[in-house]
């Protein structure tokens, strides 16, 4: 029997009804996250990466709604759960880390109160045990003098330290999956590296899977096992990090990789993808990338490409590879 993935997203569709018709922000996105795996989800603003995360944890802002597909956690559907059972899954089985640590912490409660509350909501234990657990957690995420600082309020901590507290909070109930949405975007580079290391280590230690949502390919390269590239609400390419970064196959991913300035390159021009990502109400027919694609073919303007398997671990939504496959087949 095939192993059931920890998280399985099948043909997810997220829609926003609006006065001028329904906008499809996520269109037929499918992916799995295995036990203990770190999946990176990368894309530019408006690609739908944060929405995918919000849909999984049932926190879509109305009027946004899941209009199709299913989300399975260890084989059980969680996309159609009522508010209360979903609330129990959030925190207990799926932890969350958001971009801005100041908005994920309540400014009126001390870090101790927030951590102890979270621990006791999901795990039955005494206040004292919960407090010891909280201190151990803070210590583990690298907060110096955790025993003393646990009674401080969030504003007493610096940005990087606050994000550590948020990570501790996300892991307090020992979830199976942590969804981290741009966890380091608000931080300086030197602090970013520390936070990535903490997140990576602590999740590996506890066997938690991570879905890391970011616009920064560098962060993905350092952290993820596999990466999914989103474009205009659709999956462009998914595969092992090394393959996607070093030999991208989708023309969009290729353009994206080439447009990133690196520390080692000489004074060459950056690859430039003409135009910008389409707005939700103007997604082109066929492949959404076709007006910007250097390899566009007639077919791309009419037929939407399906995910084509490339080897055992990789899938690309591009007709270029269908042609290759057919040629091989006929030859």
């Amino acid at each position: 029997m095939a192993e059931i993935p920890l998280l399985s997203v099948r043909n997810l569709v997220v829609e926003f009804p609006s006065r001028r018709g329904t906008l499809r922000a996520i269109d037929d996105v499918s992916f799995d996250i295995a036990e203990g795996e770190v999946l990176g989800m990368v894309g530019e603003s408006g690609a739908g990466k944060s929405l995918t995360g919000a849909a999984i944890i049932g926190l879509l802002e109305p009027p946004g709604r899941i209009a199709g597909g299913e989300i399975l956690l260890r084989g059980e559907r969680i996309d159609n759960l009522a508010a209360e059972p979903m609330r129990r899954i959030r925190g207990k089985r799926i932890g969350m880390v958001f971009q801005d640590p100041l908005t994920s912490l309540n400014p009126l409660y001390t870090v101790a109160e927030q951590l102890i509350e979270t621990i006791r909501t999901h795990i039955s234990c005494t206040e004292r045990v919960a407090r010891e657990r909280a201190i151990a957690l803070l210590d583990r995420v690298g907060i110096p003098a955790a025993r003393r600082r646990i009674d401080d309020y969030p504003h007493h901590f610096s940005g990087g330290m606050r994000q550590r507290v948020v990570i501790a909070l996300a892991l307090a109930a020992e979830p199976d999956l942590v969804i981290a949405d741009e966890p380091t975007t608000a931080l300086d580079v030197s602090v970013q590296a520390q936070i990535i290391d903490v997140l990576k280590e602590i999740c590996a230690e506890r066997g938690a899977s991570v879905m890391l949502i970011t616009h920064d390919m560098g962060v993905i390269a350092e952290t993820a096992d596999r990466v999914a590239v989103l474009y205009a609400g659709r999956l462009a390419e998914i595969g092992p990090v090394r393959d996607v970064i070093q030999a991208a196959e989708h023309p969009y991913t290729q353009g994206l990789m080439g447009s990133i300035p690196t520390l080692t390159q000489t004074d060459t021009r950056l690859v430039q993808i003409p135009g910008s990502m389409p707005r939700l109400d103007a997604i082109p027919k066929g492949c959404p990338f076709n007006p910007r694609c250097p390899h566009v073919m007639d077919r791309c303007r009419h037929d939407r490409p399906v995910l084509i398997a490339r080897g055992s671990k990789r899938e690309v939504a591009c007709w270029l590879y269908e042609a290759v496959r057919e040629e091989v087949h006929h030859g």
Binding site: S158, S190, I196, D216, G218, A221
Partner: peptide
Amino acid sequence: AVPDLALSGRRRTPVTGEI
């Protein structure tokens, strides 16, 4: 501290402290 896109697997010295 700059993330390594080349995936060279270079061992980085851990950054300590904050500004």
